[in-house]
Amino acid sequence: MAPVAAAVTRVLITGFGPFQNVPVNPSFAIVSRLPTTLPNNIEIYTHPSAIPVSYHPTIELLPELYGSTQPDIALHIGVAEGRKYFAVEAGSSRNNFDLIRDNDGRNFSDAEGVAAWGDSPTRLDTDLDLDGTIESWQERTKDFKWPAMLSREMQSMGDVAEQKVDVKVSRGLSVAMGNVEEEEISVMAPDPDDEVRWSDNVGFYLCGFIYYAGMVQKSRMTAAEGSANARVGKRDTVFMHVPLLISDEEIGVGVDVTTELVQSLVENWRALKE
Rank of each mutant, 00 (worst) to 15 (best):
S186K: 06
L34T: 02
Y85H: 13
I30R: 03
I42A: 09
R197Q: 12
V242E: 09
P48G: 03
V257Y: 01
A50F: 04
T259M: 12
T237W: 05
Y55Q: 06
E112G: 01
V187N: 06
I51E: 04
S247Q: 10
N25S: 10
R33D: 02
P57C: 11
P35W: 05
E274N: 05
F204G: 01
A2H: 10
S156L: 08
N268D: 02
S151E: 15
V8A: 09
F239G: 07
F108R: 04
G67V: 03
Q138H: 07
Y66W: 15
L206Y: 00
V160R: 08
S49M: 05
E184G: 02
P63L: 06
V202E: 09
V180A: 08
W146Q: 01
L75M: 07
V165P: 00
V8C: 13
S247F: 04
F97M: 13
L272P: 00
D127V: 01
S49Y: 09
D104A: 15
N268I: 01
M1Y: 06
L206D: 04
G105E: 12
R231F: 03
M215A: 10
W117F: 15
E183G: 02
A115V: 09
P23M: 12
T222N: 11
R171D: 15
M215E: 04
M149F: 01
S49H: 11
E250W: 02
S93I: 11
A111G: 04
E183P: 00
I42C: 09
S264M: 05
A50Q: 10
